[in-house]
């Protein structure tokens, strides 16, 4: 636009004053612009008025005026433009605008401008749309994109490292929880085994029913103890006599009034024994063994195998007062 200015104002006066003689246009314009308030029609210098040979002079004046106006419009445009409105009654910028807008005229200028404005509108719309739709990275410059990419790479590497660390931690925890679970399982198993041995839990399995009838009252505690010993020697794992669980600490007292662990046990004596029946039964029936000894005392002994013996008499756990684990 600034390249239009110097020529522009001089040309403006030429177009704006069509009634004046062409030779005087430039002078009029120049004087008007320099003098400011002088009317366009009145000559600034009478000497140059209407002189046909002064074209060159006029041209120089015009240039000077152009420069003056350029400077003026740069520094204080109002001073340069103010006289214009007063000089040309009838044709103001507003009227020119209105004339250009309505009625629409198909002229070369309008068409040219229309084409260029079409291009501008197109570019504007494309740019606005791509900026609003493409996200913040759309209009970013190359170096910014490189920087953002670097930052993202760093961040992704950092997060990758953190992920690996956490995965290792997770594996560790899973292993340790597996180990803890295994330990708990083994502990429970051990507790059951020890419970069977200590008589604090019930037990079931294959074994023998033994019933010792004692009509003569001849069976004494030591005979029952022999029976128990024989069964243990043959591999009995859980023994119950008349609802009394026989364990490691069990003791038998009395002669014919048998007490096991202090509880009186009356005949007939019913043994529930869990163990391998094939081992237990021969152990009882060996010549000179338990069965023969009892039968010698006129006691009746019945031994029967069973695939499912239930030993459900329980003992309460007793905390030892003096014995402590040495481990």
């Amino acid at each position: 636009m600034s390249d239009e200015n110097p020529r522009g104002v001089g040309g403006d006066k030429r177009q704006a004053l069509p009634a004046e003689e062409p030779a005087r246009d430039a002078h009029a314009a120049a004087s008007a612009d320099r003098g400011g308030a002088e009317p366009a029609g009145s000559p600034g210098r009478p000497g140059s008025h209407g002189a046909p040979g002064h074209d060159e002079h006029a041209g120089r004046d015009e240039r000077a005026a152009g420069e003056a106006v350029t400077r003026g419009s740069d520094e204080e445009p109002e001073g340069a433009l103010a006289p214009e409105g007063g000089d040309e009654p009838g044709v103001t910028g507003r009227q020119r605008l209105a004339a250009a807008l309505w009625p629409p005229r198909v002229t070369r200028a309008q068409l040219t401008v229309a084409v260029l404005l079409f291009v501008l509108g197109l570019g504007l719309a494309i740019q606005v749309r791509s900026t609003s739709e493409g996200g913040p990275l759309r209009g970013a410059r190359q170096e910014d994109l490189v920087r953002i990419l670097d930052e993202l790479d760093d961040r992704s590497a950092r997060l990758q490292g953190e992920k690996q660390r956490l995965e290792g931690q997770q594996r560790e925890l899973e292993n340790s929880s597996d180990q803890a679970e295994e330990a708990r399982r083994q502990t429970r198993q051990k507790a059951r085994q020890l419970g069977v041995l200590a008589g604090t839990v019930g037990a079931e399995g294959p074994g023998l029913h033994i019933t010792v009838r004692d009509p003569g009252g001849a069976v004494e505690a030591d005979m029952l103890l022999d029976t128990i010993q024989e069964l243990r020697a043959a591999g009995a794992e859980a023994i119950e006599v008349n609802d009394v669980r026989v364990v490691a600490s069990s003791y038998l007292q009395g002669a014919t009034d048998v007490r096991i662990d202090g509880k009186a046990v009356a005949p007939p004596y019913r043994f529930e024994v869990i163990g391998e029946p094939k081992d237990l039964e021969p152990a009882l029936n060996i010549p000179g063994g338990v069965v023969q000894t009892l039968e010698k005392e006129q006691a009746g002994v019945e031994v029967s195998r069973s695939e499912k013996i239930t030993v459900d008499a329980l003992r309460s756990t007793k905390q030892p007062d003096y014995a402590r684990s040495s481990q």
């Binding site: 229309a114 084409v115 260029l116 079409f118 501008l120 509108g121 197109l122 504007l124 749309r129």
Partner: peptide, 9 residues
């Protein structure tokens, strides 16, 4: 022309 350009874009 300007309006048509924007609309076309």
């Amino acid at each position: 022309g300007l309006i048509v350009g924007v609309v076309a874009g």
